[in-house]
């Protein structure tokens, strides 16, 4: 997609792919034919720039034909560079600017709490994105309201657009921060489907706290020259690089 569109954010796509695949094919309750079903589990893609991964998984989940992926970012495509709920079924809220997903997911989870509904709300943020203060506003409300029906997954690839997070505005100790905010924290290998499945599919009932899953990942996972390489936050492989990436990913 990124190669065809000649733009995108492949590094973050690859760090999030295993998380998204685990959610859509092992955790979330949804019917792609009823994308606004009130009882569906909600997934909010806060790192909205990683549509390469998000759209691929939505297509594989049946929300739209996989053939449409080739229209990524073309004029009038429903596959905008950042997801739009009014174009594309399966998108819950329009993201792109960072730090928007968790606060919106908080509202969704509160609606579920008011109705005593049993749907769950999941939100995936990047780690650099946590530098946005809006996340921490929402973190307070989630803990205050004991939103056990809400799960935050942090794609902890330790790289933001320009440099390592710890060389920019450090986040560590990230787990302690979330605990201090009143959340239950789990640390997993974000490329290990079994570990992800284990923490994400466990019933939240009775936990009494929102869940934060810190998924340790690598930007550019699966493609040797992108692996943990800040240069691939956004970037487009040339023909040779594209063919190499496809060989390595198979």
């Amino acid at each position: 997609m990124v190669y065809e569109a000649q733009q995108g954010h492949p590094g973050g796509d690859f760090s999030a792919t295993d998380i998204l695949a685990t959610l859509y094919f092992g955790v979330l309750r949804y019917d792609p034919k009823k994308p606004r079903d009130p009882d569906r589990d909600r997934f909010v893609m806060s790192k909205g720039h990683c549509t390469g991964a998000f759209y691929s998984v939505l297509a594989a989940a049946g929300y739209f034909p996989e053939a449409d992926l080739s229209t990524y970012m073309e004029p009038l495509s429903m596959l905008n560079g950042h997801p739009n709920r009014n174009y594309l079924p399966g998108v819950e809220t329009n993201t792109g600017p960072l730090g928007h997903g968790l606060p919106v997911a908080t509202g969704i989870a509160i609606a579920g709490q008011i109705d005593n509904a049993d749907f769950r709300t999941f939100v995936l943020t990047g780690d650099g994105e946590l530098q946005e203060g809006s996340n921490w506003e929402a973190a307070l409300t989630c803990a205050h309201r004991k939103l056990e029906n809400l799960t935050l997954i942090i794609d902890r690839n330790r790289l933001q657009q320009g440099a390592r997070t710890e060389d920019t505005a450090s986040l560590d100790p990230l787990d302690d921060k979330w605990r201090a905010f009143g959340w239950h924290v789990e640390m997993v290998d974000g490329h290990d489907h079994a570990q992800l499945l284990d923490v994400l599919s466990a019933s939240p009932k009775g936990r009494g706290k929102p869940l934060c899953v810190i998924a340790n990942t690598f930007k550019g996972k699966g493609v040797s020259y992108m692996h943990d390489n800040v240069a691939w936050h956004h970037g487009v492989p040339n023909k040779e690089q594209y063919e190499q990436a496809m060989r390595e990913l198979v």
Binding site: P38, R42, E92, T93, G99, H100, P103, V104, A105, T106, G107, I108, A109, I110, A111, G112, I114, D115, A117, G133, S134, E137, A138, L140, T141
Partner: peptide
């Protein structure tokens, strides 16, 4: 927390409120 105030509104609407 006004950013969360407005965003929570959006989330509540998603939840049918």
């Amino acid at each position: 927390a006004e950013q969360t105030l407005v965003a929570v509104g959006a989330g509540l609407a998603n939840g049918g409120k």
